[in-house]
Simulated assay, not measured.
Amino acid sequence: MISITAIFKSKTESTEQLQSMLNHLVTETRKEAACVRYDLHASENVFIIWEEWKDQPGLDIHNNQPYLQDFISKCESLVSSPIQVYKTLQIL
């Protein structure tokens, strides 16, 4: 199993727009066969996506989805700092 944590810090004036885009991303991603978990968390203007994937090939398919590529290109102007993405493997 592969885990991903992605952290988005929204510009204050873009919080609602970013959340709407993230909601769409979550809805579409959860339809993917290799997606085990894709949860959105928030605290003020910070959004965190916690992901779990069955395997690397499934994650590779996800990373090439047009809706993900579209999201990435559009959200860059809505965040106050670069998106942080951590790929981890469970050790305990």
Rank of each mutant, 00 (worst) to 15 (best):
E32K: 00
I7D: 05
L68I: 04
H62M: 03
T5Y: 04
M21N: 09
F47C: 02
V26D: 01
I48K: 12
K54G: 09
N23K: 07
H62R: 01
K9I: 10
A33N: 10
D55I: 03
R30S: 01
S80Y: 05
F8P: 13
M21K: 14
T12G: 04
I72W: 12
C75D: 12
T12W: 09
N23P: 02
S3L: 07
F71H: 11
H24N: 13
E13Y: 08
L25V: 05
R30L: 05
I61L: 00
N45Q: 10
K11H: 06
H41E: 10
Q84P: 04
V46E: 12
N64M: 09
V79C: 05
I91N: 14
A6T: 15
E32V: 03
L59V: 06
K9C: 07
S73I: 03
Q17H: 08
I91E: 06
Q90F: 03
M21L: 15
E28P: 00
E16G: 08
H41G: 09
A34T: 12
Q84W: 09
S73Q: 15
Q56H: 13
V79K: 00
F47E: 00
Q90E: 10
R37I: 06
K31N: 02
L78V: 11
F71R: 06
K31C: 08
Q19D: 13
D60V: 15
N45C: 07
P66D: 06
V46I: 11
Q19S: 11
E32M: 02
E32C: 01
S3R: 07
K74D: 01
K74L: 10
T29V: 07
A33Y: 13
K74T: 01
A33L: 15
S3G: 10
S80M: 10
A33V: 12
S73G: 12
Q69W: 08
I91F: 09
L22D: 05
R30E: 02
S73R: 03
V85C: 13
